[in-house]
Design a protein around this nucleic acid. Structure first.
Length: 562
RNA sequence: UGGGGGAUGGUCUAAUGGCAAGACAGCGGACUCUGACUCCGCUUAUCAAGGUUCGAAUCCUUGUCCCCCAGCCA
């Protein structure tokens, strides 16, 4: 085996290995997976990992992945979330075809299954209060006590359960419990609640039900009803697998899917739980679910992340059972890689410094041809106006530069990208503050296009815009939302204490080349030498352009400066 | 102190008894009309101790550390 064989991509994760094995030995002809979100919030990058896994496996096997909403708790769920989740999954590039389901579609069958459980003497109606149930459950080290209602007659249980369904009892007064084992070392097996009374309207079934099934009971049966072969979930459900199997072994279901657990995604400098993300939204620490600083799918989309970059990221980080922390830099790198290939290059100045080219005729201008992507000639060219007054980046000029500074300084010559060589001849400063107001340069007309006929070289090339032609715009720079790698690390300190107060910088005096006038919202561009930006899909208007910085270019000069 | 999991460079992933590999990060260099991209080179790892074996990250034993579980949430 040579190196090219050893290092190819045949290495697949343990879940795909299991599935390949099940197909090879004929257990299944094709896998059927599912992505089962609860419609109680927006999807985030952690869900993307699961989406890419489940839909990815289906795609690779020419099979189906179901989108199933786990909507068993109407007190937390809303139809609006359903729509946002569908949009996000589609945007990521996946399709569920006809396989759109809701756990609530199965409420009738779930009820019948529960009655069957009662008939088998495997479930009972319990009148204990929530607190009493907790006390009776025991602790991690002490076994539980059996409920006094555990040995009710089967017919009585059926009647009582029916009355629960008919709304005869108050919320919290009765539950249906599976009759398993109060002495089990696995707390999930100590007669878990499978139905509770909730006098709340459901976003799909309305007021039809006042009892709702619990997750453990609903999920395995929904999987079985849909013919799921492999039910992939995160590690915290490992302890629930015996219960998942117990329901399917006890009831006569069409099939018995296999639950496999994998580690959830953790990213540095962010929080991943829906509960905490909700707090950021409701506490107005961000502007909404789609704030570009958020790692929600909608936030990433608005920030300028591409579906491909997120898919690549998910495939890069792999699937395992070890809890791991992925460096935020890996995510950033994935979008840089994708946009480097696809984003057209343009010039934009974020912090403008005026330059007057003293030997250029005052009333004249000309057009310079520029490539839209230097490595991809097929992306074409555009024309950029040039004139006597231009703006450059303030950071591209230093009055007293160190020798390694390749940009503009008194007496120094640089190239204006695609245009001319210019040499700084004088610096105009504010009398009171000493701040540089403008600089005067001369240009060499023989260097049109950026090359000197005499063959002389300049080390630096800087970007610029023509003062008379540039479009003014707003640019929003984003930094990590949190100042520390793990905002959850200290249980004594609220994670919001670690919010990065400088996560958003709004620049209002930016200038971009006039070719951007008609750019469509959401378009990604590279501002040369700076980074990737996209036109904000919420706030940008034709007369007030707003760009989001998706991610900066790598900057070895800045890094060397410390 | 019950049960369920997990330990491979700074980070993530692979190697499924046979040369510890790749990516990210870091460092050095080349190239460059983007201090980008690209290319080249380098540093850094099998939790510990025993055992089985010609040979162990992998199998066995013992131990250590980390995570999850006591919702009528999912």
């Amino acid at each position: 085996m040579d190196n090219s064989d050893r290092n190819n991509d045949k290495n697949v994760d343990f879940i795909r290995q299991i599935i390949a094995e099940d197909i090879k030995n004929g257990k299944h002809s094709a896998p059927v997976t599912r992505f089962p979100p609860e419609p109680n919030g927006f999807l985030h990058i952690g869900h993307a990992k699961s989406i890419c896994l489940n839909f990815g496996i289906a795609e690779e096997n020419n099979a189906c992945c179901h989108l199933r909403f786990d909507d068993t708790n109407p007190s937390k769920e809303e139809a609006a979330y359903v729509e946002s989740i569908k949009k996000d999954v589609q945007w990521l590039g996946y399709e569920w075809g006809d396989n759109l389901f809701f756990a609530s579609d199965y409420f009738d069958r779930l009820y019948d299954y529960a009655v069957e459980l009662i008939r088998q003497d495997k479930a009972y109606v319990c009148d204990l209060s929530a607190e009493e149930i907790r006390e009776y459950r025991g602790t991690l080290t002490e076994t539980g006590k059996e409920s006094p209602y555990r040995n009710r007659a089967i017919e009585e249980n059926i009647a009582l359960f029916h009355e629960m369904k008919e709304g005869k009892f108050e919320t919290g007064s009765h539950v249906l419990r599976a009759k398993i084992d109060m002495a089990s070392p696995n707390l999930n097996m100590r007669d878990p609640v499978i139905y509770r009374i909730l006098k709340v309207d459901h976003h799909r079934t309305g007021s039809k039900w006042c009892i709702y099934p619990m997750y453990d009971y609903t999920h395995c049966l929904s999987d079985a009803i849909e013919g799921i072969t492999h039910s992939l979930c995160t590690l915290e459900f490992e302890d629930h697998r015996p219960l998942y199997d117990w329901f399917l072994d006890t009831l006569k279901t069409p099939c018995h899917p296999r639950q496999i657990e994998f580690a959830r995604l953790n990213l540095t400098y962010t929080v991943m739980s829906k509960r905490k993300i909700l707090q950021l939204v409701t506490g107005c620490h961000v502007t909404g679910w789609n704030d570009p600083r958020m790692l929600t799918i909608s936030g990433l989309r608005r920030r300028g992340y591409t579906p491909a970059s997120i898919r690549n990221f998910c495939s890069e980080i792999g699937i395992g059972k070890k809890e791991s922390w992925i460096d935020m830099g890996v995510l950033e790198n994935s979008v840089r890689n994708d946009l480097n290939d696809t984003a057209p290059r343009v010039m934009g100045v974020l912090d403008p410094l005026k330059v007057i080219i003293t030997n250029y005729p005052p009333e004249e201008s000309e057009e310079i041809e520029a490539q839209n992507h230097p490595q991809k000639p097929e992306m074409g060219t555009r024309r950029i106006p040039f004139s006597r007054e231009i703006y450059i980046e303030r950071s591209d000029f230093m009055e007293d530069p160190p020798k390694k500074f390749f940009r503009l300084g008194p007496g120094r010559e640089v190239r204006l990208r695609y245009a001319y060589f210019i040499t700084c001849v004088s610096v105009i400063k504010d009398k009171d503050t000493g701040v540089v107001r403008e600089i005067h340069c001369t240009y060499d007309p023989t260097t049109y296009g950026g090359n000197a006929p005499d063959g002389r070289k300049v080390k630096g090339t800087i970007h610029w815009v023509s003062a008379a032609h540039a479009l003014s715009c707003e640019v929003r720079l984003y930094d990590r939302l949190f100042a520390v790698e793990n905002p959850d690390a200290d249980k004594e300190v609220d994670f919001k204490e670690h919010l990065n107060t400088d996560s958003l910088t709004v620049l209002t005096n930016c200038l971009v080349e006039p070719s951007l006038r008609q750019t469509a919202a959401g378009t990604s561009l590279q501002f040369e030498r700076q980074g990737y930006f996209c036109l904000d899909i919420e706030d940008s208007k034709p007369d007030h352009l707003v760009f989001n910085r998706t991610v900066g270019l790598r900057d070895s000069w800045a890094k060397a400066q410390g």
